[in-house]
């Protein structure tokens, strides 16, 4: 944290900080409530397909995207709603996509796992684990070679550490000093298996082997995530080369909404502790209250406003029409 945040009366910098953390809070809450409604839509059989919820990991997407410009690139994952919202996607078109509606970001053709949005630099969520590491690295290659100062952020879960292409592209990125940041969201579980059962050595050691700049951060603390992300983004923008950021976090729910009985791979006690002691939204709320950036009433008001927005977005999506069946053969080729 900067010194300015310690002194709420200290002028314009403080005002900007104040505004920033309230914006961050609102974004994290938007993701949390979005996912609650996804869960609701899914369990009411209103949403087809699969739903992989981001709840518990909000500080990672928001802390990092807050350090990016709208024209910077991201690639996302099957657990991607948080990344897309954090980069600027609007909940109504997100929900519409999740329900397969024409108003969705992909005209209903992508669904929950493939949301893409050129307007916010979102190159797309990817349902192949590690599938977007090449795309993000290529976007960084392009950003550099077209003489822009854009940065690409590649979000992936720790499960992607098992994919060889990650190591191929980290090698390329370091050789060519590409402005790409590999963000490993270590939510502890590769689907239904703890990562320690699948991951030899250390996570950061893998990136360090290529000489890539590495950092480890508490992924439940959005201020810490944002601070390190800002440093790495600034470094990449200044042609300092790629970085690998490990964010330790926790997936509150199952691998997907249908993964209800989880005790064969993790305990209820563990889940309880993360949710009560390490909740990223509560951690930020405590900071806002301690610093006097907000009081209980103003946080309630934000919650109420976000809830209204999300509920309207759900209604928009439910009421929206499906694409015409004739569209099935459109956009196979450009």
């Amino acid at each position: 944290m900067t010194i300015a945040t310690m002194h709420p009366e200290a002028g314009p910098v403080t005002a900007a900080e104040h505004e920033k953390w309230l914006r961050v809070y609102r974004k994290m809450l938007t993701i949390r409530l979005f996912e609650e409604h996804v869960n609701d839509l899914y369990t009411r059989a209103l949403m087809p397909g699969l739903a992989h919820l981001y709840s518990g990991e909000e500080a990672v997407a928001v802390g990092i995207c807050e350090a990016l410009r709208i024209d910077d690139y991201i690639t996302s994952t099957h657990r991607g709603h948080g990344h897309c919202l954090a980069k600027g996607a609007s909940p109504d078109r997100m929900f519409a996509e999740l329900l397969g509606k024409e108003a969705g970001y992909c005209r209903g053709k992508g669904g929950s796992m493939h949301i893409a949005d050129p307007a916010t630099g979102n190159l797309g969520a990817n349902a192949i684990v590690g599938g977007s590491v090449g795309i993000a690295t290529g976007a960084a290659f392009s950003a550099k070679n077209r003489a822009t100062d854009r940065v690409a952020v590649c979000f992936f879960g720790e499960g992607a550490l098992g994919q060889g292409s990650l190591y191929e592209v980290m090698n390329l990125a370091q050789l060519w000093k590409l402005p790409v940041i590999y963000v490993c969201e270590n939510n502890q579980y590769n689907e239904y298996t703890h990562y320690r059962e699948t991951t030899a050595g250390t996570i950061l050691g893998r990136a360090a082997a290529f000489g890539v700049e590495t950092a480890l951060v508490d992924g439940q603390d959005v201020r810490a995530v944002h601070e390190v992300a800002s440093r790495l983004v600034k470094r990449a923008r200044a042609r300092g080369g790629p970085a690998f950021l490990q964010c330790d976090t926790y997936r509150y729910g199952g691998h997907h909404v249908g993964d209800i009985n989880r005790e064969y791979y993790r305990s209820k006690q563990e889940e309880y502790l993360w949710k009560t002691e390490r909740d990223p939204i509560r951690i930020l709320a405590n900071f806002l209250l301690d610093r006097g950036y907000a009081d209980a009433a103003s946080l309630d008001r934000i919650t109420s406003e976000v809830r209204t927005t999300i509920e309207a977005a759900v209604k928009f999506a439910i009421d929206a029409p499906y694409p015409d069946v004739d569209e099935v053969e459109q956009d196979v080729y450009a």
Partner: peptide, 25 residues
């Protein structure tokens, strides 16, 4: 810069090409 030698990493550099193509090259 335009005739770029790569390591022996077909999956990696093909992926880089996909991302570069999506972003204007």
């Amino acid at each position: 810069q335009r005739v770029v030698d790569t390591p022996i990493s077909e999956a990696g550099f093909t992926g880089v090409a996909v991302g570069a193509a999506m972003t204007g090259m």
